[in-house]
């Protein structure tokens, strides 16, 4: 069956073991997690977990139902129209062509955020597939380290 990429937001009680319940559900039932982000929702006792996953329609439907079954889960959204953003941090040797790097960053809502003796760090924040493109494009500048944040999403 055709695999679909889906972004699922899960609103959960802010309590100790909730993340392990979610992650355990995915590993125990053999579902994929492409990325996962968690943070408290300001001014509430809830957190939002954003999960990017892949599966057939049947599997996605099961994932959503199984998430609902977990006791500390308040809501599960499967997004249709959404804004997705992801951030990446990349470290380069200062010996690379910094102006080219800076220009590329600019095209992906990014900038240089730290300059050290031997390395610089840049960040970009954009749609996930654009972040992937950016990471491809900067390969020739010999990045020493790459950190992706995982996706956050909001319904339009």
């Amino acid at each position: 069956m055709a695999q679909e990429r889906r972004v699922i937001s899960v609103i959960v009680m802010n309590e100790a073991s909730v993340l392990s319940r979610i992650v355990g559900l995915f590993s125990g039932r053999g579902y994929n997690i492409d990325s996962l982000t968690v943070a408290p929702i300001p001014g509430s006792k809830y957190s939002r977990i954003t999960i990017v996953t892949q599966g057939s329609i049947r599997v996605i439907e099961q994932i959503i139902k199984q998430l609902h079954k977990l006791i500390p889960v308040l809501k599960v959204y499967e997004h249709e129209h959404l804004v997705e953003k992801e951030m990446a941090l990349v470290k380069f040797p200062v010996t690379e062509c910094l102006s080219d790097i800076a220009a590329l960053c600019g095209a992906y809502n990014g900038q240089i955020v730290n300059v050290g003796e031997d390395t610089i760090i840049v960040n970009v924040a954009d749609e996930p597939h654009r972040v992937s493109n950016f990471l491809k494009a900067i390969k020739r500048f010999h990045p020493k380290e790459i950190v992706r944040s995982g996706v956050v999403a909001m319904e339009m």
Partner: peptide, 8 residues
């Protein structure tokens, strides 16, 4: 009673 059992 369990929605996850239906159409699983």
């Amino acid at each position: 009673i369990d929605p996850a059992s239906i159409s699983k």
